[in-house]
Write a protein that binds this DNA or RNA. Sequence first.
DNA 1: TTTAAATTCTACTAATTTTATAGAATTAAT
DNA 2: ATTAATTCTATAAAATTAGTAGAATTTAAA
Lengths: 137, 137
Amino acid sequence: MLSHKTKYALKALLYLAQQDKDYISKTIDIAVGASIPKKFLEQILLDLKRGHFVGSKQGKFGGYYLLKSKEEITLAEIHRFFDGAIALLPCASINFYEPCSDCKNESECLLRHGLIAIRNETLKAMEGITIASLEKK
Amino acid sequence: MLSHKTKYALKALLYLAQQDKDYISKTIDIAVGASIPKKFLEQILLDLKRGHFVGSKQGKFGGYYLLKSKEEITLAEIHRFFDGAIALLPCASINFYEPCSDCKNESECLLRHGLIAIRNETLKAMEGITIASLEKK
DNA sequence: TTTAAATTCTACTAATTTTATAGAATTAAT
DNA sequence: ATTAATTCTATAAAATTAGTAGAATTTAAA
């Protein structure tokens, strides 16, 4: 499941994608427009900025805008950025690999192979969803 | 991600699947054989019993055995039983549907459609993985 | 009928993660 | 200067996860 944080991030990105190109949105407008708690959204936008998904302008008349194009931002990427691994266990993950502490011999683990198959399918699907594709319904 | 509980449940089911048909395994043997904390495993086996995945025999020389055939038990089923929805948000779930409290109009939600597509793909993959298929590597 | 060995049940706890909120500091435009 | 925005640091409440403890019950067998 997605955390609220990830859900809010996706909604915020969708909101920004729907504004005119280079229009600068204030946090409060995103919060109201996308029904996201404002203070929580502040943190999320800062995270998105650190991830180079959005840019910001400080001070009066400041705000946020998309940095990456909406065709480039995938669900897989946002999921990994906020919620981590796509795989169902760390031992089946590409980007967040970790061995299981309870695993005697990973190469003989019967579970892992199945989970890698699932991860491949899910990943393919999640990489196909972009902010732009979501917008087009 | 799978919870440890779900991971342990799958490992326990795999352990049972690998014993001779109708052999009754003691909790302690499953715990040691599959590297699962024994007390935690007790709870998990009780849950699996209540879900009619395993059967038990009480008292001395008691223990657990598979009730459903290993070809019938899917990853999707075990995931739902312990960790709940396959979908990334409750609003995109079949079995655990709930509307988002922050959603103004679900039919207009741009996120939901994409998440339903993901869920369909993931579900198909997870229904294809059974305890028996895991065993065959 | 007693003992041993297993499941079953209820309750508790400790740690972690999630979901925020508070408030001060900084920045920039007017 | 003033206003209005982002930025930063810290805190906190709630929920979830991952277990543990210990007594009760059940069954087989001596």
